[in-house]
Nucleic acid binder design. Sequence first.
RNA 1: GGGGCUGUGGUGUAGCUUGGCUAUCAUUGGAGGUUUGGGACCUCUAGACCCCGGUUCGAAUCCGGGCAGCCCCA
Length: 524
Amino acid sequence: MAAKDKHKAEHPAPKAEHSGQHTPKAQKTDHGTPKNAPGVPNPVEDTKGVTVKKAEDMPEWYSQVCVKARVADYSPIKGCMVIRPLGFALWQAIQDEFNRMLKEDGVENAYFPLFIPESFFQREAEHAEGFKPEVAWVQNKDDDAGKERFAIRPTSETIMYDSYGRWVRSWRDLPLRINQWANVVRWEVKDVKLFLRSREFLWQEGHCVYETAEACHEETMHYLERYRQIAEDLLAVPVFLGKKTAREKFAGAISTYSIESLMPDGKALQMGTSHDLSQGFAKAFNISFQGRDGEQRLPWQNSWGFSTRLIGALILAHGDDKGLVLPPRVAPNKVAVVPIIFEKEKEMIVAKAEEVGLMLNEFRPIVDTRDEYTSGWKFNEYELRGVPLRVEIGPRDIAKDQVVLVRRDTGAKEIVPFLKARDRVAELLEELHENLFQNAKRRIEASIVAVEDFAAFERAIESKKMVFASHCGEDDCEFVIKEKTAATARCIPFDEEKATPKKGATCVHCGEPAKYNAYFARAY
RNA sequence: GGGGCUGUGGUGUAGCUUGGCUAUCAUUGGAGGUUUGGGACCUCUAGACCCCGGUUCGAAUCCGGGCAGCCCCA
């Protein structure tokens, strides 16, 4: 069908353009929405909607929502995924916001190679050991016999710091602050899941070098706060901030800090990490500088990252039995305008819908004027796809100079005068964000239980809760807890008061004196 | 790391136990018509046995291996 209508989807054409009269037949030929028009779906696959309830079978629900809402799709290779336009639009919205932050902070984007020489990995022993099980290697036997093999990056510390070693000479070169948007490969074998655990995923990784430990630590914390903003203010997913235990920290870091959330199935999800690398990599990669005093010194480094896993988080956190619910600030189309078309008034109704689309242009509306689908079909479609607000406009509304607004989160309908629609849409989108966030927050708070003995710990984990408990801080003890319950230490809260055990408190598992309080849960 | 379940048009399925003619049904796609305030209806049409090997006159069906998906345990 005509390419002309491509514009209708997201950029409604002015009313005047449609003032010419056509016969119904000609109209269909000239004005039908083209396949693959942006925003307007072309349902080539199953369009029946999600067949299981979220609360009853979340793994199946999650998979169906990803596939049926056309966020992502499976690929022929285990653990690899196709990110479809809707999923990628979400990623781009996250990128846009984070790039804005980077710019504000003065961190620059760059790009380093996908392949890393094996010898680079071995320079930092703990790092090499930590990533060993999941690195994928490239070795072409014909060309490279006897030569060093290459890793496909699971993370880029080593390849980047090799360059940094040559770039940093003087204190004047510091701080060196670079971010990279890239794909990485971690060869997971078990429990792969779209977005949440895949062999290849997209992420950003910031890698900075500082003159002093203080400056380094400050920015390590600053980016943890940036991640909180991305999760909570952009995606409406509540998180808590904390420090990883020694067992769970990044291989090669002295401290790892993370933002953690709890999904509705009781599983914790790490949504971003910021690592204080101290001087270990600087030593291993010969990054040094001449200080202000003329002495040769080692700099301090951090690295921080989040991935497309965030998309999985927002799907799990907000979706419902009808499908996806997109938090308004990342939704590529915040509004879907659905005209209620009646044959005899078709021209007028379609024109009005386009006028509404134009009025709401800042919200990138989908204006679905196709007449080969009924309005009921479209309602279901945009609900499945998670569009935050639906605007209905039919003959009754036109007669009364009004539109009908329907929220995706609550399903609440309201009628607003035509001229007030734009302002009301803006308000509702904000309310929607807040409502999603508060609902998730209440759910999470209700799912955390403080326990003092191990029997209660096991019961709580078994009933899909997150546990807050005192721990001795011993790696072995933490390991045994994992063996027994499959739960891992998620983080030690920042709040000193929360993190410090009561006087005389003992470890929830081994009974030794407690060193700190931490959150435990089964995790993705 | 261990165990289990599953794989048939784009999607969901019947058939498989007990091998046999043109692989069932619905939906989706295409064409046409009639419709449109919560997944409309009619007519015509297109489209599939995961891959490799074995047993057999004959395999979607039985056997072995592989690949992929899902679940449970650790």
